[in-house]
Amino acid sequence: MNKAVKRSKKAALVLMVPATGFFLASCSTEEPVPSAVYKNAEECAAFYNPPESCKAEFAKAEALHQQVAPKYQTQAECEADFGAGNCPEPAAPVPGQQQASSGGFFMPMMMGFLAGQMLNKSSSAKQSVPTQPLYKSKDDLSTFRTATNQPVARQTGPVSVMPSRMQVAPGKMASRGGFGAQAQRRSDQQSASSGG
């Protein structure tokens, strides 16, 4: 007789049990992922990468630049971090078009880009490395850095990076607290779970 069992074969917990070395150590056991840094699409192609892919990845980084670059109210503040001449005037908004997200702020020039996982499409890494713009700060002009000031490489070419440090984030203040008011209002009336 081969009777089908109606219950789970196992019901293990890993997260809810008391903290063990595995989870505390999980940050330091993250595997580095291969990527590459180039100044522009041409340099990328010179490293024997498909020119079309290089152009596409560079364009992606340029588009992200508007969103993620550090933003300053004044040119002086920007140049204090990124050096004289490295913070161009913001582009004037084109009438009738939606204002670019740089929104009249000063941003440093993009000095290069991280070519994501272009060379590494079959990577088994759980977390991917996004293609993104890179910058150089005034006090360390030899190091390529992400918009969130993570150092990436001191020269162009292949590089290993930790995916968790390479995640992109919009370089702008977020507003918070836009969810939760209904539960608050209702729990003021009685103790209520949001579930059921």
């Binding site: 969130t148 919009p170 702008k172 203040m173 977020a174 507003s175 918070r176 836009g178 969810f179 939760g180």
Partner: peptide, 15 residues
């Protein structure tokens, strides 16, 4: 209440 929003995109505490 930690969910943030930037230009219509919901974001985490690191944006």
């Amino acid at each position: 209440d930690q969910i943030g929003e930037i230009n219509g995109q919901l974001v985490d505490t690191d944006n």
